[in-house]
Amino acid sequence: MGDAVVERRSGSVPVQYHQFDIKDEAGPVGPELGWGEAGFVVVMDGVIVVVTGVHTGSVEVEVALYEAEPGVGDGVWEEVVEISACSVSGDLQVRGMMDDLDEELPVLAFRGAGEYRLRVHARGREDGGDLDEGYLVQVWPAPVRAVAVPRQESPGTARALR
């Protein structure tokens, strides 16, 4: 496991309609992935959608970039999903669905265009707006692999939104 962090930064991400996005404006990041196939993460129209408990507002998101696969985050994370993403332009980023971030988070495709693995952690989604709702996105260069759901303690919100 490659626990050496290349960069780590967190910030407030705007949420609308229970979601924020991870996308590359130049093209799709991966094949479609429907509701329930990967917990609280969906891929629609080539965009990775992270389904939140908050309907409208903001959530805290931490981005951590690694050269190699890190260990899964500690026990504060109730849900964890791993997904592969391809960045066409090298500009794969966490973005609000309709609003820009006040402060930019690191570009996820930190080694340029290519394939990456994203491990998205969530906590507090079931509280639907509790101040403790937060996310950690770990990213490292890796070839495409199947979706994995290493931890899923509270699947109710994603199911209720379908």
Rank of each mutant, 00 (worst) to 15 (best):
A146F: 07
R145Y: 11
G112E: 08
G114W: 03
G75E: 10
A148L: 09
V107F: 00
Q152S: 13
R123D: 13
E103M: 07
Y116Q: 03
V80Q: 15
A64I: 05
D102R: 03
W35A: 04
M44G: 11
A122P: 05
E104Y: 08
D130H: 14
F40S: 07
F40T: 04
V149L: 05
S58H: 11
S154C: 14
G71W: 08
Q138L: 05
Q152A: 13
G53E: 00
P70V: 12
G90Y: 05
A122T: 02
Y135K: 14
L131N: 12
E82W: 07
G71R: 12
E69M: 08
G112C: 07
D45T: 09
G75L: 12
E67N: 15
Y116D: 06
D45H: 10
L92A: 03
R95D: 15
I83R: 00
V43H: 05
R95N: 15
G96C: 10
A148K: 15
E133W: 00
R123V: 05
P106F: 00
V54Q: 04
S87W: 01
A38M: 01
V139L: 02
P106D: 04
R125A: 08
L101D: 08
F40K: 09
E60A: 15
V47H: 01
G71S: 14
T52M: 13
W35K: 15
F110C: 12
V43L: 12
G96V: 00
W140M: 04
V54L: 15
E69V: 08
E60T: 15
G75V: 14
D99M: 15
A68F: 12
P106W: 02
L105H: 01
W35R: 15
S89F: 07
L118Q: 01
G39P: 04
V63G: 03
E62G: 10
L131D: 13
E103P: 10
